[in-house]
Design a protein around this nucleic acid. Structure first.
Lengths: 226, 226
DNA sequence: GACTGACCAATTTGGTTCTTCAGTCAGCAT
DNA sequence: ATGCTGACTGAAGAACCAAATTGGTCAGTC
C-alpha cells in the first residue's frame, strides 16, 4: 500500500514537479482515498521525502551489488563515477542534485527530508572515507584533515551543478563521469594501484557499512517495501 | 564620467540588487541626468554588464601584478587560489560566481553581459591552459583532451557553488582556497616541482596574454577609465 | 554640442476577490 | 471494532484590474 502511494507520488512529481502535484492527485492515482495517505505520512513534505529516501535506497542497493560483483568498485573514483551516472539517469535524483527548483520546489529547501537526506549522505560518506583510508585507498587521512570532506564535496558538486550551465555540457554523460573519475583518482587516491587483496578487504568492510545504511533507510520508510 | 556612473551603479547593485536598482537612482547618485547614462550605454543591462566587466578588469590587473612579482603565481593551483579569493571578497563577483539570483536577477541569465562575460573567460582559460601545457606545467594536453576544460570547470565550479550550501561551509575562506588549490595541483599538474626557469618562461608568455586580454576588456568599456 | 528631465509605453505593484489545496475527522463499509 | 474514505475548513495562492514605476526617448536648455 505504502509502496503504491510512493509509486504514484514519484510518477507525478517527475512529471509535474512538487508544487503542482497535490496529495489528492497522488491518492487518486494510487487508487486510495486522500485520508489514507495521511495514515502513513504526517505531511505532504514527508511523503515526498520518502520518495527521495526510497530512490536513494534503490541506488544504494545497486551500488552494493556492484561492489559484490567487483571489489574494485569500492575505489573512490569508481564508486563516485557510478553514483554520478545513477543520479543523472534518475530524473528525481538528478533534479535534486542539480538543484532544479522547478521540479522540487520547497522539498529542496525544507529542513526535513531534503536536507536531512543530504546530511545523512555526508555523514555516511565520512565513514566511507575512513574505511578507504584504513585500507590505503585514500591519499590523506580524513580524521587528520578536516578539509578533506570539503574538498571532495566541492569536486563532486561541480560535476553536478555544471550540468545546468549551457555551452559547457556538450560532452556525453559517460564522458562527464569519466572526467569526474579522473579528477577524483588523481586528487584523492594514492598513485599506486591497489592490490586485489586490499580491494577485497575494503569491499567486505564497506559491504557491511552499506548494509547497515540500507537497513537504516528502510526503517525510515513506512511499511517494508522496496 | 562613465567611471562615476559605474561607481554609482556598482554601489547600488551591491546594496539593493539589480532588480531594485533603477537607472534613475544610478544617475542621481552619480550626479548626472538619466539621459546621460543612455549617452554611454544603450540599456540598463549593458550598463550593469560594464560593472561586471570593470570588476573583472580590476581582478585581471591584480593577477597580472602578482605574476610579475612572483612567476610561481602562474601555476594553475596558485592562480586559481588567488582568483577564488579575489572573487569571494568582491560582493558582486561573488554574487555572480555563486549564482545569487537575488542580487543579479536577469543580469545573470541575459544573453548579453553575464553570459558573454563567462564565455569570454572560458575562451581565455583555454589559451591559458595551452600555454601552461607548453611549459610543462599541466599534466595533460588540453588540445588532445577535450574533456580537460570540462574537468577543470567542474572542479572550480564546485568550490564556488558549495558556498551557498549550509552545513558545509564552516571553513574559513583561506582554508577553502587551500582546499581548491590542493585538488587542482594534484588533479591537473605534473607531480614534479617546476624549475624557476620554467616558471619565468611561462610567466613572460602569460603576462603578454593577460595584457592583451586587459586591452580587450578596456575596449569593452565606454571611456578610458579604471 | 554636451547634457537634461518631462514624457510615453510597457511593465510592475498593491489590493481585492475567488479558487485551490493541505490536513482533519465524522462516518461508512466490512 | 477496524480500516479507509471523502466532504469540510482555514489558510495560501491564483486571477484580476487599477494605479504607480520604470526603461528608454527626444525636444529643448545651457
Amino acid at each position: 500500500m505504502a509502496a503504491r502511494i510512493l509509486d504514484a507520488a514519484e510518477a507525478l512529481v517527475v512529471r509535474f514537479g512538487y508544487r503542482r502535484t497535490t496529495v489528492d492527485d497522488v491518492a487518486r492515482r494510487a487508487g486510495v482515498g486522500k485520508g489514507t495517505v495521511y495514515l502513513y505520512w504526517p505531511s505532504k513534505l514527508e511523503l515526498f521525502g520518502s520518495v527521495l529516501t526510497r530512490e536513494s535506497a534503490q541506488m544504494l542497493a545497486e551500488q552494493l551489488a556492484m561492489v559484490k560483483a567487483d571489489p574494485g568498485e569500492v575505489r573512490l573514483h569508481r564508486s563516485m563515477r557510478c553514483t554520478f551516472l545513477q543520479i543523472m539517469r534518475r530524473p528525481l535524483s538528478k533534479a535534486f542534485a542539480t538543484r532544479d527548483y522547478d521540479v522540487l520546489g520547497e522539498l529542496m529547501t525544507a529542513s526535513q527530508s531534503g536536507v536531512r537526506f543530504v546530511t545523512g549522505k555526508i555523514e555516511t560518506t565520512a565513514r566511507y572515507l575512513a574505511v578507504l583510508y584504513k585500507h590505503g585507498l585514500l591519499a590523506d587521512d580524513p580524521a587528520a584533515d578536516p578539509a578533506l570532506l570539503y574538498r571532495l564535496s566541492a569536486a563532486v558538486t561541480g560535476a553536478f551543478l555544471l550540468e545546468g550551465v549551457p555551452g559547457m555540457g556538450d560532452l556525453g554523460l559517460e564522458d562527464k563521469a569519466d572526467a569526474l573519475a579522473t579528477t577524483l583518482r588523481r586528487a584523492f587516491e594514492p598513485a599506486a594501484e591497489p592490490t586485489p587483496r586490499t580491494l577485497r578487504g575494503a569491499a567486505s568492510e564497506l559491504t557491511e557499512l552499506y548494509e547497515q545504511w540500507a537497513v537504516e533507510l528502510a526503517k525510515a520508510l513506512p511499511g517494508g517495501d522496496t
